[in-house]
Simulated assay, not measured.
Amino acid sequence: MATSQKVLTVNIVTPDGLVYDHHATMLVACAVDGDLGIMANHEPIIAPLKIGEVRVKRTDNPDHEDAVAVNGGFLEVNDNVASIVADSAERARDIDLKRAETARERAEKKIKVAEAQHDIDEVQRAQVALNRAINRINVSKHRRF
């Protein structure tokens, strides 16, 4: 695809609906195999995402970057549109930090109890909850450039 367009449309959708939709010069997402940087005119790609931060450098303000906590899903890039279909996602400005910290504490306690009971399945579930809470905490503290 050889075009001169320098704008990438980024949208993030969850089962609850559209979470994010903006034009960007660059997108960085946490794929299972490592971070991906996507700019306009990128070759088509589909990649599974892990729990992590998605950063979007917006076109309307070159010094502005949005952060979104994404909890798994898939990224598809095609024709200057980057679509993320996520299990759940939350913009940094919408994250309730106190709620995220409470979720982290709850998950840490569940891990300790499950380890004491040698319940491997419960340890894994609690670890996922802990990773999601930590991701939300980190993204909520993200400072814009």
Rank of each mutant, 00 (worst) to 15 (best):
H142C: 03
I120V: 15
A116T: 09
K57D: 11
N135G: 06
H22I: 00
N78S: 11
D94E: 10
E108M: 15
K112Y: 00
E76C: 03
A2K: 14
V68I: 15
D16N: 02
T25A: 08
M39C: 09
V19K: 11
D96R: 08
L36T: 06
I120S: 12
R125A: 12
V54Q: 03
R58N: 02
N78H: 07
R91L: 12
V13H: 01
V10Y: 02
L97S: 05
T3Q: 04
T14N: 05
D121I: 15
D121H: 11
H23F: 02
E43G: 05
V70H: 06
V139I: 10
R104M: 06
D79H: 13
V128P: 06
E115N: 08
E53S: 14
E101R: 15
R144Y: 00
A116Q: 12
V139T: 11
F145L: 08
L49C: 01
P15I: 09
A31K: 06
T9H: 11
E90C: 13
V81W: 01
R143G: 14
L27H: 10
I111H: 04
R93V: 10
S83M: 10
D66A: 11
H64Y: 12
S4R: 13
H23R: 09
I137C: 07
Q117K: 12
V123D: 03
D21S: 11
N71P: 00
A69W: 03
G52F: 05
A114Y: 01
M1R: 09
A69N: 12
P44R: 01
E115A: 05
K110N: 14
M26E: 14
N78L: 10
R132E: 07
L27M: 11
E53F: 10
L36N: 06
K110D: 09
A40W: 00
A100N: 07
N41A: 12
K57E: 08
H118R: 14
A2S: 15
E122A: 15
Q117T: 09
R91F: 03
M1E: 08
I84L: 03
E115C: 02
L36S: 06
D16F: 01
A126Y: 02
N11M: 11
R93S: 14
T3P: 03
K109D: 13
Q127R: 14
A29H: 01
K57Y: 06
K109P: 12
K50G: 06
T59G: 07
Q127D: 07
N11I: 04
D63E: 12
